[in-house]
Simulated assay, not measured.
Amino acid sequence: MRYDQKVYFVKRIPGDYDQKTGNYTDKEHTFPVWATVMDTGTDMLNLLYDKIPQGSKTLHVMGHWKQPDLIRIDGKTYKIDLMRTLRTKQTFIVSEVPG
């Protein structure tokens, strides 16, 4: 299995209150990780979602990571739907976040 695509794990950190805008400014830390990215199989899509959503992918990364808040692949943002930790790697099933 090739780990040939660079993905970015995004961890959100609550920021400070901005008095000018009235919003909190969240900060994001991104970590580049080499992964194998593939489309999720139809059987797994039916089992996990009970339908076939658009933009679902499966990632394999070497080693063990703390669960990120989001994952960016090719400029698109994905949320984690399922994470499995195996002996030497982790598997993530992610779906695209609209917008």
Rank of each mutant, 00 (worst) to 15 (best):
F9K: 04
K79A: 13
N23W: 10
F9D: 03
F9S: 09
Q19V: 09
P98Y: 06
D39T: 06
P53A: 05
T88Y: 10
V97W: 00
G15R: 00
L45H: 04
L86E: 10
S95N: 11
L82S: 10
K51R: 13
T77K: 05
H29R: 10
V33Y: 01
R84V: 13
N46G: 11
K11G: 15
Y78N: 02
R84M: 13
V61A: 01
D18Q: 00
Q54T: 06
F31V: 12
Q54P: 04
T77Q: 06
D18P: 00
I13S: 13
Y24C: 04
T30Q: 15
Q5C: 01
G55L: 05
G75E: 03
Q67I: 15
K76R: 08
K51D: 11
I13T: 13
L82A: 11
G99T: 10
G22N: 02
H60W: 10
V97I: 13
P32S: 02
V37H: 12
M1F: 06
I93G: 04
T85P: 00
T42Y: 12
D18E: 02
V33N: 03
D39G: 13
K66H: 13
R2C: 06
R72N: 14
I13L: 09
R12C: 09
R12S: 14
R2Y: 12
V7T: 07
M1N: 10
V33G: 07
V37M: 06
K11P: 15
D4M: 03
S56F: 08
R12V: 14
Y8N: 13
N46L: 15
T25G: 07
N46S: 13
M83K: 11
R72Q: 12
V94H: 07
M83S: 10
I52W: 01
L45N: 11
I13N: 11
T91A: 12
V97K: 07
D50V: 14
I52S: 02
Y78D: 01
I80N: 02
Q19I: 08
